[in-house]
Amino acid sequence: MGDITSLGWTPERDAELPAGCRPGRVARVDRGRLTVLTADGERHASPGPLRGDTGPAVGDWVALRGELAVAVLPRRTAFTRGAAGRTSAEQVVAANLDLVLVVDALSTAPRLRRVERYLAVAWGSGATPVVVLSKADLCADVPAAVRAVAEHALGVDVLPGSSVTGAGLDAVRALLGPGRTAAMVGPSGVGKSSLANALAGTTVAATREVRDGDGRGRHTTTARELHLLPGGGLLVDTPGMRELGLVDDDGLDTAYADVAELAAGCRFRDCAHRTEPGCAVAAAIDDGRLDPARYTAWRKLQAEARRQALRSDARARAAEHARVRAVQRAHRTQPNRVR
C-alpha cells in the first residue's frame, strides 16, 4: 500500500495523532477486534482504553500503538442513524465519508419517500449524497425513472446503473477518485453488494437473489466493511437497513429545500400550514407546485426528529440525575464527614 494518503489521510490530521502512534483506518469491526488498513497493509488490532467519544466505526481513523488502537481521531463526517425502538441511542454506520451513495433499485417503481428519508440523513452526515439507481437492466424506461427521482432529490446527482451489463457504472467510478471514500446505503435487495463487486472488479461481498413472490431483498452483507477499489477510491458496503431513524433534523431543510423555502414565505412564522391565511405551502399544494405527499413526508420526518431530540434530552437529564445521586451517596458514606 505504501502511501497512507491513498486511504484518505490528509496532512491536517498529523497534529491529531498522539505521539508515538501511527494512523490506521478501520476497515471492519468485529467483536473485540479491528481490521485496520495502514501504510504497511492490513493489520488486526484490539481496541484499548480509547480516547474519544465513541468506539471505532468503519471508516474511522485510529491511533495505533503496537497492536492496540488507543484513540479514535476526530470524525470529519459520519452517517448515523437512530437505533431501532424507543431509544435515543445513535449508531455510526460509517465515518469520514466524502460521498453517501443512496441506492434504490429500478426493478420496481422508485420508492420516493424512502429515497427522501435516506437523503435527509445523508445531508446531515456532512458528506455529499448521490442517488444510484441500480438494476437499470430491469427497467423499461430508465430516463423516466431518473426524472421521477430527480424531482424529489433536489441538488443531488441521480445515476442509473447495472451491475449485470456495466452500463452507467463509469459515472459512479468517476466519483471515487484516489483517497475518496463513499458508503453505499439502502435497504436489502436493492443491489448494493452486486454494485460493490462490480466497482471492485472482484467478489468482495456475497450476493443472493431477492425473495420469490414479493421481490423483497434478503440480507447478504452482514457487516459493514471498507473496500479498496482499483482506481484508488474506498467503498463501504453496508448491510440492508430495515429501519433508518433520524438522529436530528440537520439534513431535513436541505433534502426538502423546496418545502422549507415555501414555509419561510408564509405570512406567520408559526404557521401550521393548514388553514392559516397567507400560507405559502398550502398555496403551492393548491396550484400543483408542491406534491402533498412530499409535504406530508417532510412534516413526518420533522416530528420524528423532534421526538428523537426529546428522548436525547431525557436521556441526558437522567444521566445527570444519576451522577448527582451517586455523588450524594458517596458523600453520605464517607466516615469522616461532618454530621
Score class of each variant (00 low, 15 high):
Arg180Ile: 13
His331Arg: 15
Arg294Asn: 08
Tyr295Gln: 09
Arg33Cys: 13
Thr333Gly: 14
Thr202Trp: 11
Arg180Tyr: 10
Gly8Ile: 04
Ala83Leu: 10
Asp248Met: 02
Ala45Tyr: 05
Gly177Gln: 13
Gly265Asn: 13
Asp214Gly: 06
Asp137Phe: 11
Arg317Thr: 12
Ala89Ile: 05
Lys300Met: 11
Leu235Ser: 06
Asn197Phe: 10
Val185Pro: 09
Arg81Tyr: 07
Val93Tyr: 02
Trp9Gln: 03
Val132Gln: 10
Leu195Lys: 02
Thr38Lys: 06
Arg269Asn: 11
Pro187Cys: 12
Ala316His: 14
Glu42Tyr: 00
Arg267Ser: 03
Leu97Glu: 00
Thr87Gln: 05
Arg294His: 00
Val338Asn: 11
Leu228Tyr: 05
Ala260Asp: 04
Leu226Pro: 06
Arg180Gly: 10
Val149Ala: 11
Ala109Ile: 06
Asp237Phe: 04
Pro160Ile: 06
Ala309Lys: 13
Ala293Ser: 13
Val92Trp: 06
Arg267Pro: 00
Ser6Trp: 10
Glu12Cys: 00
Gly232Asp: 09
Gly126Ala: 09
Gly245Ser: 05
Pro74Tyr: 12
Arg216Val: 12
Arg289Ser: 14
Arg76Ser: 15
Ala283Met: 00
Thr108Arg: 14
Gly55Trp: 00
Ala263Asn: 01
Ala260His: 01
Gln334Trp: 14
Leu37Asn: 13
His321Gln: 14
Ala257Cys: 14
Asp141Gly: 04
Asp248Thr: 07
Ala309Leu: 10
Pro160Cys: 08
Cys266Tyr: 03
Glu276Leu: 02
Val281Met: 01
Ser194Gln: 01
Arg208Phe: 05
Arg224Leu: 07
Gly8Ser: 07
Phe268Ala: 08
Gly265Tyr: 01
Tyr118His: 09
Arg315Gln: 14
Gly66Asp: 08
Thr296Phe: 05
Ala167Ser: 13
Trp298Lys: 01
Val132Phe: 01
Pro292Cys: 09
Met1Cys: 13
Ala303Cys: 08
Val92Ile: 15
Glu209Phe: 09
Val247Glu: 01
Gly288Lys: 06
Ala57Arg: 04
Ala69Trp: 03
Asp104Cys: 14
Val102Glu: 05
Asp60Met: 03
Gly24Cys: 02
Glu225Val: 03
Leu235Cys: 07
Val172Thr: 02
Arg173Pro: 03
Leu195Ala: 08
Ala319Arg: 15
Val29Cys: 07
Glu90Phe: 09
Arg65Pro: 10
Val190Asp: 12
Leu99Arg: 15
Val172Ser: 08
Leu64Thr: 12
Gly85Cys: 08
Lys192Arg: 10
Glu67Cys: 10
Cys279Glu: 05
Arg75Phe: 03
Ala283Pro: 10
Gly251Tyr: 03
Gly245Lys: 01
Gln328Thr: 13
Thr275Asp: 15
Arg294Val: 02
Ala89Pro: 00
Ser134Cys: 08
Glu276Asp: 03
Arg147Glu: 15
Val204Trp: 06
Arg289His: 13
Asn96Ser: 07
Leu106Val: 09
Thr181Gln: 14
Asp104Leu: 14
Leu234Ser: 11
Leu97Asn: 09
Val281Thr: 04
Val100His: 08
Arg111Phe: 01
Gly24Tyr: 09
Ala89Arg: 15
Ser188Thr: 11
Ala206Asp: 15
Ala322Trp: 05
Ala183Met: 08
Arg337Tyr: 07
Gly189Cys: 12
